[in-house]
Design a protein around this nucleic acid. Structure first.
Lengths: 195, 195
DNA sequence: AAGAGTTTTGAACATACGGTCCAATATAGG
DNA sequence: CCTATATTGGACCGTATGTTCAAAACTCTT
């Protein structure tokens, strides 16, 4: 009972995430969030606590979801593993100004001063590294990658390449260039095939 | 004539850069800068203008220096080009908490909202890409990389790997892991040798 | 209809912020 | 020693910030 909520919590969180992702934590005021979500400041505080709690919540959700996505990418036949890695690296066609990854943005902005953010970032990256290692192992089993190669390092190379491509995309580097880099990364990994 | 300055401009700029690099632009107040540099706000404003001008100055200097460093890395004999690429990627031994790159931090935080920052970031990354392309071309001439490979894309792979390694370092990922990724990146590029 | 329980609202609050100003101070040249 | 000039450090201002709160609005139960 009680007065019902006028807003959809998931919608509000999605909007707040978008704003945080665009202007960062310190660059976003509670007024900005209030305006973007349509909720008054009082409602925001009532529903989510203070600004830090709201951000932490959004960041946690994002990391969880990123980890799940990574785990989901591992599922599938071995002989398509390389394609799945490739698809992950490619910049989407209609790419303008970059949606960007909250994990990257929050880590860059806050890891130094916020231990909770740093810890969550680290474990999330470790999940990504692990998923990519598994994908490389699949590609090895499929004969697409040298079975003697260090799967963990090669998987890591995919993760760093992904991060790097996004960083350059944020600076406005030509998407076509970035996609050729993605191709080169996969080619380099696949060239370790024993012919 | 008149009263001479009590501070060394370069020292102040270096300190301010460190602070900006740690807590970001929006996360750093003018009082923070004043405390860190030992200069009063009045002196800061007299010497460097407002907070935006100071940051832009520091960022410009950093980009210029990063571009020069990249250009300097190109100098040297062809048969050491691959080593120079490798050395650039390696994380320094005494690495704790990451010094980090102002270019990456500023781009992540501000590119979306600040056109001047975004433009400078883009041209700086293009200089980095160009330097790495030249280094790969050197390695090709030395016979360390397949001469038929796309040197621009392989050079880009080095840049994105570098960016990615730093992003993961910021999250606290084990430096040893990152160095194995750096090794893998160089190995992958070098494996394009025609034997 | 009345009451209990929630949420919304909009204003109020204290503080922190970026930015400005100025009297006091220190120095170089005349 | 004096004058001109630059720096200094702190007081000061208006605004924006994060946060709280009392009152109103609303739904469900009794």
């Amino acid at each position: 009972m009680g007065r019902p909520r006028k807003f959809d919590e998931r919608e509000v969180l999605a909007t707040a995430r978008r704003v945080f992702n665009e202007t960062g934590f310190h660059g976003t005021s509670v007024d900005d969030l209030s305006r973007a979500t349509g909720l008054s400041k009082g409602s925001l505080y009532g529903a989510f606590g203070d600004k830090d709690a709201l951000f932490q919540r959004i960041f946690d959700d994002y990391c969880t979801s990123a980890g799940q996505d990574a785990a989901a990418r591992v599922e599938g036949p071995d002989d398509e593993a390389l394609n799945r890695l490739h698809a992950w690296l490619r910049v989407p066609d209609g790419h303008r100004g970059s949606l960007g990854c909250l994990l990257a943005k929050a880590t860059a902005e806050l890891a130094w001063e916020n231990e909770a953010i740093a810890a969550r970032s680290r474990t999330t990256y470790e999940i990504l590294l692990d998923s990519c290692r598994r994908l490389v192992e699949q590609a090895q089993r499929a004969g697409h990658v040298d079975p003697a190669a260090d799967a963990e390092a090669l998987g890591g190379l995919v993760v760093t390449t992904h991060r790097g491509i996004e960083a350059l995309a944020k600076a406005g580097v030509d998407p076509a260039t970035l996609n050729r880099i993605a191709d080169a990364a996969i080619d380099s990994i696949a060239l370790r095939v024993r012919v």
